[in-house]
Amino acid sequence: MNFTVSDVIVESEIITSFLLTPEAPLKRDFVPGEYLLFESSSDEGDPIRREYSISGVRDGDIRITIKREVAPEQDLPHGVMSTRFHDVVKKGDIVRAAGPMGAFKLDRTSDRPVVLLSGGVGLTPVVAMAHDLAGTSRQTIFIHACENGRVHALGAEMRQLAREHENIVNHFLYRAPTAEDVKGRDYNTEGMISRKLIEDLTPGCDCDFYLCGPGPFMTAMYDMLHDMGVATDRIAYEFFGPATVLRPKTAEPNKAPTPAEGGPTVAFKQSGVQVAWDPAEQNLLEFAEEHGIMVDFSCRAGSCDTCKTRVLKGDVSYPIEPFERPGPGYALLCCCVPDGDLELDI
């Protein structure tokens, strides 16, 4: 779909927002956390695609907030799409994008407190979440880390949001404040996000945590929350593009929590993951994959035995009848669901 750029707002030295008017109403309202997929041609002829999170809406316009990506090393090119937005795109231009889409979404059905943790320009989707949560009964703690005031985007907007809504609390960290940055006015803490800071600011582990930022930031935050004892299905994080998840990984959930009250728990022993079963899932194979556990599979239809897995504790039932059920002590994950608490040898 085409969007007209209705306004360009410089947010910091390196971050700029673009307000976009869709040519036709979107198919559905966006859920905070979702992104638009932009497409643009390049000199080589290959179209370039980039996902940019929606950082908010204003009078029906969608706002995206983009950081100018400079090359990490001298010989590498600058970010093509972000440079284009910063240097070329101006008010009145037409840009092309698909969406909204994305798996990182605010779970509006939960009533737990929310902790929004962001690093750098990763704040864009969580700012949209904060706007959505403002004025609700859910306590919302917005923790944002960046270099200093010169690159801090949307700070004034978040301060105003917190002033106007008592359920929103901000905490800004600058790694290296400049002479112009005033502690208490511009930022709260110098340095990085620590475990103690999270423990002091949040009401405990039973919150919904949303993480977004550069890779190392996310890894550090994820591990920290994990060490604090936050259940993995309470942690959702931004997830861009298909290739990112092609790398086999273990125990990296990216879903907002969807526990079933009093429902069965599934433990994946070798992966060290224990999660509440989600009754909306079709089968245990997909459920494992949703939680970042890759099980060998081929047919996904009960005919090849590739996903046959040892059951250590508990039992399964088969909503879909496989060609042949496996022997006792085993389960064909692609066809079965837990029948009570379950422990699997994967």
Binding site: M101, A103, G241, P242, A243, V245, L246, R247, P248, E286, E289, E290, M294
Partner: peptide, 10 residues
């Protein structure tokens, strides 16, 4: 890993 439902949905 590139062909699981979670990825294909995207």
């Amino acid at each position: 890993p590139g062909f699981i439902p979670k990825v294909l949905r995207t």
